[in-house]
């Protein structure tokens, strides 16, 4: 009997080790330890074993049973391992390229615009928005641009026919014409007409000039303007803002310089120069980057703010120009062609 048991274990050891599939394992399990299995059959022979040998024999049978279970468990574990391995393909070559490695990219103009907005948000400016189709009042009249000013000429500004109607762009007077805004300053007027000061907004957006497209000109381009209205606002505050903006954007070794200039809606007015020789393709000592000034009292009076009480400043710049400076791009048309070899450089 003892020999039979030993032989049974030995046989199971050999047979189970070779199993690779669950059905075969189930069958083998039945053959060894099932109700009709060989071990069960041997256990049934216990009655024939002499009484004094029974304890020893019982122990032996239990050991054999435990041993068989161990073998079955091991076989199951081996089969499970095989099954998992079967789910895998061949080993990968990690150096192969990802077939859809393409990642989304923000347009450089968006990157520059958002960076400027973040910088300005830190000092309390919120981002304002307004229509690109405007009326003469918001684009010119309210900004102290007289009716015969050259900027209003049909040679320089895109107009719509008198028959055009824009359902969601309000007109101040029935006679005024719709046009494509030539600057985002119209947003300043709409914002001021909407509520009382203090005001601190930045308005980025598309603007339009009737101009030939070349390396530095584009029929539509993007501007970014700031408007600050409060009590006791000074020229020095304006300079402080510009120093802050360009210091944040281009680093501490950036300098700004004001040059007197003329705009109808600010007095005094300045052009802003940057000295940032660490940027690519900057050869000149000073590069013009935008215009600014103290809001003209006439503009305040026009929107119903008392110029004796309120003062403010405005600043505006071209986003393409800034992006060209930051990245060293020398042709404005690249922004509008969307060649992926261009777009992928700013990811």
């Amino acid at each position: 009997m003892q020999a039979t048991l030993t032989a049974l274990v030995a046989k199971a050891q050999t047979e189970l080790a070779g199993l690779t599939a669950r059905p075969a394992l189930e069958a083998a399990k039945a053959r060894y330890v099932g109700p009709n299995g060989e071990l069960t059959a041997l256990m049934k022979q216990m009655g024939t074993v002499p009484k004094e040998q029974r304890p020893a024999m019982g122990k032996l049978i239990n050991e054999t049973k435990a041993r068989l279970q161990e073998l079955l468990d091991a076989a199951l574990a081996a089969i499970e391992t095989n099954e998992l391995r079967a789910q895998l393909g061949p080993a990968i070559d990690p150096t192969l390229p990802t077939p859809d490695a393409r990642s989304g990219t923000y347009h450089p103009l968006t990157l520059v615009r958002e960076e400027m907005c973040r910088i300005l948000r830190k000092v309390g400016f919120t981002v304002a928005d307004g229509p690109e189709v405007e009326t003469e009042y918001y684009c010119f009249d309210a900004l102290n641009t007289p009716a015969d000013h050259p900027a209003r000429d049909v040679q320089d500004t895109f107009y719509f026919p008198a028959t055009a109607h824009f359902g969601n762009v309000s007109k101040k007077t029935a006679e005024e014409k719709y046009l494509l805004r030539t600057h985002t300053s119209s947003v300043q007027i709409r914002t001021m007409l909407k509520g009382p000061p203090p005001i601190r907004i930045v308005s980025p957006g598309r603007t339009y000039r009737r101009d030939a497209t070349d390396a530095t000109h584009s029929a539509n381009f993007n501007q970014l303007e700031c408007l600050y209205v409060d009590k006791n606002v000074t020229v020095r505050d304006l300079k402080a803002l510009l120093d802050y903006i360009f210091g944040s954007l281009l680093g501490k070794d950036t300098k700004t310089r004001f040059r007197p200039h003329y705009f109808g809606y600010t007095e005094p007015s300045f052009e802003v120069d940057l000295s940032a020789k660490h940027l690519p393709k900057v050869k000149k000592e000073w590069i013009e980057i935008g215009g600014c000034g103290m809001v003209d009292p006439t503009v305040f009076a026009g929107v119903g703010y008392d110029p004796e009480v309120w003062s403010g400043y405005a600043f505006g710049m071209g986003l393409e120009r800034l992006a060209m400076l930051l990245y060293g791009i020398d042709d404005i048309r690249y922004f509008y062609q969307n060649d992926l070899r261009f777009l992928n450089q700013f990811a």
Binding site: G104, N220, N338, L340
Partner: peptide
């Protein structure tokens, strides 16, 4: 952009 589009800017006109 998060869904892997390339953001473009085209002329309005």
């Amino acid at each position: 952009v998060g869904h892997d589009f390339h953001e473009c800017v085209s002329y309005t006109l």
